[in-house]
Design a binder for these strands. Structure first.
Lengths: 228, 228
DNA sequence: TGCACTTCTGGTCAACCTGAACCTAATGTC
DNA sequence: GACATTAGGTTCAGGTTGACCAGAAGTGCA
């Protein structure tokens, strides 16, 4: 009854890199090892208290930078978790505003530095602190839904890319193979792609045309909140 | 820099009632007149500080009950707003976790009592306090999106209803007319409806069969968060 | 009683979308 | 130059969608 309520911001960060065993693209998530009770020693989402003069999204981006040295290509609010049971300690309850972010693989490599930070494959996580397992599960659900009707897959890729590369992102996120011809038809008719005159050569096969995304289209459509 | 951060929970409450002029179904929203600065006299979303021992959703439901005497048929988190600029006063910043709720019209009538509470048609709102106009706009956007792929329209109706009544809800939310025959076909093939043996008589036309929703299907699919 | 009127309900049709299969094009390798 | 491999394009069947039509079954009125 007399408990205080603390406000924290955490972030689920996704990167796309080959799985260690299968070499196929998989989603990776960086976690931070807790160095104090409760849940000391368990892995948790990067996050921290909200600075008094910054916005929620800014706090997520700052914390992401501090813990993983990364800047997100895409950042969106996921959910605010505030059950009275998820307390840090007996006399303090924490409400967490959680964001989810997408970063490029090159960036993810550069971010390996942090000593208490380690990257995990998103579907092979260890036991996490607090309710963070549920949070990651929900973030994965949102990502898998959103990749189908937005162009957020672009956040995993560079400026230009082949349709096979873009398809690889979708396949890794959705965890199923997609028909190349049908995928091409869908992407071409979506109007989100712009064909360039460049080609990706070097493979032992016909070169693939490079595309880029139409920059005038937002990564994801969030209605009236698009600007935030 | 030295400002404190307060945590509040607000709710955008939707009911469906005939428009005062056109007599057509429209979305209504209850607002509360502010009795203190800042924005004294302006209308604002019902809400209040989070009690220390309750969950976020519970706080929204309690506040909804206190200000409008209503219990929601549907309640879902909308977004957490926390820009550093939306402060109540110079030295205190407020982070608002906003929910949106759907209530039945009968309930909405009973809720007229509150003296500083008034219902407005959702697209004809006056100037609102803080960033509440944006919040309502976003809630409307979410509602209009969600009504197309979930069965939340049921929250506006009673236990049983005719297809015309259900179509009326969709038309009012989406603000466009729908073909009765095609709407029927879609609803029937969705598997969400169960036909009853009762009919609605009394109109000067052929009686309409009454349907009810399949209770085993959730109002809205929220993935891993369905239980919360 | 019979007719007008209204909405319910079931159906058709063309356009579009989707998944699946197949074919040709263009490169590197041997 | 033959071959393996992936890019890129076409076709076909099945399902879905919007537009429209017509009979069914009530109420109200002559």
């Amino acid at each position: 009854m007399s408990s205080r309520t603390a406000l924290a911001v955490s972030t689920v960060i996704f990167a796309l890199r080959p799985h260690r065993r299968t070499r196929r693209l998989a989603l990776w998530v960086p976690l931070v090892r807790r160095i104090r009770d409760p849940h000391r020693g368990l892995w948790a989402l990067p996050g921290g208290p909200l600075a008094s003069d910054e916005g929620l999204a800014a706090s997520a981006a700052r914390n992401l930078l501090e813990t993983t040295r990364l800047t997100p290509q895409y950042l969106e609010q996921l959910y605010a978790f505030g059950g009275p049971d998820r307390s840090d300690s007996a006399d303090e309850r924490t409400v967490s505003v959680v964001y989810w972010a997408l970063v490029r693989p090159e960036e993810a490599d550069a971010g390996e530095a942090g000593v208490n930070v380690r990257w995990f494959v998103a579907d092979e996580l260890p036991e996490l602190a607090f309710d963070h397992s549920l949070i990651v599960e929900y973030a994965l659900w949102r990502l898998r839904n959103k990749v189908e009707y937005s162009r957020i897959a672009a956040a995993f890729l560079g400026e230009t890319f082949t349709l096979a590369e873009l398809r690889g992102v979708h396949e890794a996120v959705l965890q199923r193979t997609l028909d190349p011809a049908n995928f091409r038809r869908q992407m071409e008719s979506s109007g989100r792609l712009v064909a360039t005159e460049a080609y990706r050569t070097g493979g032992r096969h016909r070169p693939a045309r490079l595309y880029r995304h139409d920059q005038s289209i937002h990564l994801a459509e969030n209605g009236p909140l698009t600007g935030l």
